[in-house]
């Protein structure tokens, strides 16, 4: 834990020096998220860890055109975390990106906090309060439509879970976005293959997922959702096809980065105890370039 706070101090004083790599950014977000759910005895750490590399490239890799100093800048890109239960990594990312003080993370899920267990608007950088699944993509489509109508360069990125795709509202929005050619809309699926009750394959099959998006009129690409170069390559130029919205099916591992959490349903619910936290942070530490 000491090394993590050192990383914070380094970051706080590092604004004028070299930028962190997205790998470092992701490692810091993972450590923060683990500490947050540990302190709050909160759930959903597996969901946070599976998408952390995607967020690190979006926010730490300069993909999103946002400015923490002007969170309401009208022409900013919008990012919606439709899987709002992965709030720990969501908030940690925004804090690491400079939208609000790192210290706020200590209050996650505490009484009277600004940071409830699902991502909530009003926190700088949060565009939409989420928590109930299947809401982010329709709202993102509306934002993309507004940006186009206003001649704004803003793009809208929506990150969805795989289990969330069971919700019919997503497929309404998928039809809509393609029909209206919303090429400024990007949907990213954190395809970690696990949902609340078990594997996606057992609960409600999504495969062939990329073909479904394509059949609905989207340009769809599959990537390794932990390969930063692949993520950056897929997101740095959108749309992938003119006149079409873009879907990225990111193959991920639930609990990624902590060996005993990887691919384990239980970490959708459990919170690490002191020992588990120490082990998890030690594993992240080992990842650091020597």
């Amino acid at each position: 834990m000491a090394s993590v706070s050192k990383a914070t101090q380094k970051k706080a004083g590092a604004e004028t020096t070299t930028q962190r790599s997205t790998r470092e950014f992701a490692r810091d977000v993972r450590a923060r998220a683990l500490q947050m759910v540990h302190r709050a005895s909160a759930s959903h750490i597996g969901s946070s860890l599976s998408m952390t590399d995607l967020l690190a490239v979006l926010y730490g890799g300069g993909i999103l055109r946002v400015d923490p100093a002007r969170p309401d800048w009208p022409e900013r890109d919008r990012f919606i975390l439709s899987k709002g239960h992965a709030a720990a990594a969501g908030y940690a990312t925004l804090a690491e990106a400079g939208f609000f003080p790192i210290e706020w993370l200590d209050t996650y899920c505490q009484d009277g906090s600004k940071l409830p267990g699902h991502l909530t608007r009003g926190v700088p950088g949060v565009e939409l309060s989420t928590g109930s699944l299947g809401h982010g993509l329709p709202v993102g489509a509306g934002m993309a439509l507004a940006a186009r109508a206003d001649g704004s360069p803003a793009r809208v990125f929506v990150l969805l879970s795989d289990g969330e795709l069971d919700e019919g509202s997503n497929w309404e929005a998928i039809l809509f976005a393609a029909h209206h050619g919303l090429e400024n809309l990007v949907a990213i699926v954190d395809y970690n293959k696990i949902q609340s009750f078990g594997s996606v394959a057992e609960v409600m099959r999504l495969d062939p997922l990329a073909e479904k998006w394509r059949a609905f009129g989207w340009a769809c690409r599959e990537i390794d959702g932990h390969d930063h170069a692949a993520i950056a390559e897929a997101l740095s130029v959108v749309p992938h096809e003119p006149g079409k919205p873009t879907a990225i099916v990111a193959h991920t591992i639930k609990g990624k980065g902590v060996s005993f959490m990887e691919d384990q349903l239980a970490w959708h619910y459990k919170s690490p105890n002191d020992e588990q936290l120490a082990q998890a942070l030690a594993e992240l530490e080992q990842e650091k370039p020597q």
Binding site: V139, A141, A147, E172
Partner: peptide, 21 residues
Amino acid sequence: INVGVAEQNMVGVAAGLALSG
């Protein structure tokens, strides 16, 4: 816009437009 027979998406799209002024 006629959003089709899709009321959930209609409200979501409306919210996205409203969040954009």
